[in-house]
Design a binder for these strands. Structure first.
Length: 606
DNA sequence: GTAGGGTTAG
């Protein structure tokens, strides 16, 4: 396609097309402003607008047709590719310029754009090479280049040492320099480091702006510090940045991730302006701890005419999964398909999980099977689904398929497959995976992995081996490991070991009602009814009425929510109806109830 | 005519 055709196709004004005759200088028949601009400048203008519209090919055609390309044209191409996330093409264009652009000297714009490409590629070697070239072209002292260098080192290196070296050498730092350093620490998971730099920024009387506040609040969220977050919120108000939506979104997220949901709600209602990220932050923030509210916020968002995007749907689907309310999830799935975003990786992964948690593993597999791109999360979601449905053999098969597809398993995948083996009684397979994770994949087991293996052995009755494993662990077992062991002791009625496990759990995590419940069962089957009752009394003291476990069922297209002992509301009849159906089903499959707890419940009068 | 840092999902 020629420049003329490209321009005509995109309805570029005829005046611009005429002036793009490379050999023709300042056509006299045209009126300003077009006559004033030489063709190469007009072409650069066009290149920029093509990239802004995502018309990458058109930009390249135009660039290739330019008889002479100056440094601005080259830099526009490099930054254009980088702004469209085409970092490798940005980098090859930079290399092409350094190699072929004989008479073109790179400038600050060129190097900062090239460094952005290196950052996007996460390539330290390209970044360091660009650093060397920048020094060779006397770029030291350019704040733009130095800030881009810091950003590149912060993103491409494990530590922050090189970014700090560049930062120290900047004589006059600006807000971007400070913000880049804070962001570097925070994105590497060192929120305390980020806050240290933010404090230093204030001490050195550098003027913080909305960018620095957003990332400082993000640092608070990453370390779960509501105290620091609130202080920075106050500073935001003092500086008059409450009108900045990104800053307020950051604060909203901080309150959610620090579990201060009522404060988050207050913050949300106080926002005069909101964008899609505001809504998404609120929905995602409630998804785990209060999924019902998360869905309410989503309904409110829709009623206000805001169009949900992939982020929204991922959180909504996760909330549906947490509540297992398929009646809410299915229409949302329909909406996703109608919007044509069912192929989005995160959305599809969330759908796999949702159907699995709602009991429809067949639908999980259908989604998994048609996915064009799968990542490790897709495989893990499917493995967790199979595991929770008791399909251990399918999980094992799927794990092997995952290996064949070239995905390297991580710790979470091993937890998923070990869990699946545990629930399906595939002890030897599970132990084989446990051994191979270190020897074949160099993945070190953590508390969760040990917890799974203890559970695997414990469920199968190999309690002695489980105890030996705990004793030989390379680190102190946590409450999840002892908790798994306690479960095994309860299941196999091993009173003495069970008491030991419970005391360990209570040492590590006191005031957990469930542990007292376990101990109560253990004392009951040990014949120590007095101790058993004592544990129940202790347990009741532990239960905070406000945090009572809430259950819900779907019956006749309605969701009914209730807590233990709930006798209020007309819907309670439905609950009993469902419980009766379940009891009938349990009888049909010959499930035997553990009578110890039932007898004790009757004696206890509860 | 070209360049920078911040907020949401898994």
């Amino acid at each position: 396609m020629t420049t003329r055709k490209v321009a005509q196709y995109h309805q570029i004004p005829q005046t611009i097309i005429n002036s793009l005759h490379w050999q023709q200088n300042s056509p006299t028949h045209l009126n300003p402003p077009f006559v004033a601009k030489p063709p190469s400048i007009l072409a650069t203008d066009l290149i920029k607008s093509y990239f802004q519209k995502g018309l990458v090919k058109e930009a390249r055609v135009l660039f290739d047709e330019m008889p002479e390309r100056d440094v601005v044209a080259w830099s526009s191409m490099i930054s254009g590719y980088a702004s469209c996330n085409l970092y490798r093409r940005a980098w090859t264009t930079f290399c092409e310029m350094m190699r072929d652009g004989v008479n073109v000297q790179p400038n600050e714009f060129t190097f900062s754009s090239a460094l952005k490409a290196c950052k996007g590629m996460r390539s330290l070697s390209c970044g360091a090479l660009t650093h060397g070239l920048a020094l060779k072209h006397s770029m030291h002292g350019s704040l733009y280049v130095d800030n881009a260098l810091m950003d590149m080192y912060a993103t491409c290196c494990d530590g922050m040492d090189d970014a700090c070296l560049v930062f120290e050498e900047i004589t006059v730092k600006n807000a971007v320099s400070w913000t880049t350093l804070i962001a570097g620490y925070t994105h590497q998971g060192d929120g305390h480091g980020g806050l240290r730099v933010f404090r230093q920024m204030l001490l050195e009387e550098a003027e913080p702006n909305p960018f620095s506040f957003s990332i400082a609040v993000r640092a608070c969220a990453s370390i779960g510090s509501h105290i620091y977050g609130k202080q920075i919120h106050a500073a935001v108000v003092k500086h008059g940045f409450e009108s900045s939506i990104p800053v307020m979104n950051s604060i909203l997220d901080m309150y959610c991730s620090c579990s201060h949901l009522s404060e988050a709600d207050r913050c949300f209602h106080g926002m005069p302006e909101r964008d899609i990220i505001t809504w998404n932050t609120l929905i995602a923030g409630h998804e785990k701890s209060d999924p019902c509210k998360s869905l309410n916020h989503y309904s409110l968002m829709e009623s206000e005419g805001i169009t949900p995007n992939c982020f929204t749907f991922t959180s909504v689907i996760a909330a549906v999964a947490n509540m297992a309310v398929l009646s809410f999830g299915e229409p949302v799935h329909g909406k996703i398909l109608r919007r044509g975003i069912g192929n989005d990786l995160a959305v599809a992964n969330a759908l796999i999980d949702m159907y699995a948690k709602c009991g429809s593993i067949v639908n999980s597999f259908k989604i998994f099977n048609v996915m064009c791109d799968k990542n490790i999360v897709s495989w893990t979601s499917m493995l967790i689904g199979y595991g929770s449905h008791g399909y251990g053999k399918e999980a094992v098969k799927m794990f092997d398929q995952m290996l064949h597809s070239g995905i390297r398993p991580d710790r979470i995948v091993f937890v998923a497959v070990l869990n699946a083996c545990s629930h399906a009684g595939l002890v030897d397979e599970g132990l084989r995976y446990f051994k191979s994770m270190v020897s074949d994949y160099n993945v070190m087991p953590d508390q969760d992995v040990y917890g799974c293996v203890v559970d695997l052995l414990g469920r199968a009755g190999r309690v002695k081996e489980a105890y030996e494993l705990i004793e030989t662990m390379p680190f102190m077992p946590d409450e999840s490991v002892w908790g798994a062991f306690l479960g095994a002791c309860k299941a196999h009625k091993l009173a003495e070991l069970g008491k030991l496990a419970a005391s360990k759990v209570l040492d590590l995590r006191p005031k957990v009602a469930g542990t007292y419940m376990m101990l109560s069962y253990i004392y009951a089957f040990d014949g120590k009814w007095g101790d058993s009752a004592k544990m129940r009394k202790l347990m009741r003291r532990m239960v905070n009425k406000k945090e009572a476990g809430r259950s819900w069922i779907e019956a006749r297209n309605q969701i009914y929510s209730f807590v233990a002992g709930d006798r209020l509301g007309s819907h309670v009849e439905w609950v009993y109806e469902v419980v009766d159906t379940m009891s009938l089903h349990m009888k049909e499959v010959e499930y035997t109830t553990d009578l110890h707890c039932l007898i004790h419940d009757l004696e206890d009068g509860t």
